[in-house]
Design a protein around this nucleic acid. Sequence first.
DNA 1: CGTTAATATGTTGCGATGCCATATATGGAG
DNA 2: CTCCATATATGGCATCGCAACATATTAACG
Lengths: 107, 107
Amino acid sequence: MEWKKGSAELLILSLVEARPRHGYEISKLIEQRSGGTVRFHVASLYPLLYRLERRGWLHGRWVEKSGQRRRRYYRLTRQGRRVLASQLRGWREFVAGINRITEAENV
Amino acid sequence: MEWKKGSAELLILSLVEARPRHGYEISKLIEQRSGGTVRFHVASLYPLLYRLERRGWLHGRWVEKSGQRRRRYYRLTRQGRRVLASQLRGWREFVAGINRITEAENV
DNA sequence: CGTTAATATGTTGCGATGCCATATATGGAG
DNA sequence: CTCCATATATGGCATCGCAACATATTAACG
């Protein structure tokens, strides 16, 4: 099914809340923590990261270490934190709404 | 946000589970039962109803009554019932997955 | 009787968002 | 030396909901 659409933003913002993370790490965390249920392709993930940075919700910086390829770590900005809180409320309301509809009949 | 995408199918199938309903009724029920949180425009709803019928998940028939405009009532087919059950499972797994991710950090 | 609102169905074209396929680059395991 | 995991990147496509518009009937209001 086509769930997912729109959930990617919320997931990324959630995952960089506690500390900065890079794209690949975010993608692996989404897959692991969802038990494999949710998975985003790189062609969705990276463009979305740029979009979130352009909007000022994330701030990214390159980190280079010898022995590994350069990574871009994203941290949540102050504005991003507000957006995350608002999206979390919206998500919960939405789920509650859907549940009321899908469960109304089979009570 | 862009939640919703993909949820319309599940909602329609759920709403015609107990008894046949017509498009306008479905749209009003979604709005009411979600407390106004979820709302689909006619340009989403009607084409989706045709699609679900074409796939054999719904079966529609015209009902004409004097004193009102003709309505097309959709009922859930046997196949539609199986699809609904499967989509409900999928939806719940998806929500559980998203919740695990968004809540992992703030425990 | 004319206007407005609610009911009821329908279409064209657009925008947002995720996916497929492909590309580049490095390090470790076999 | 090949394969896999890591890591970032992009062009073109598919899906899905929305805005705007269109048609038709009935009831309520002044």
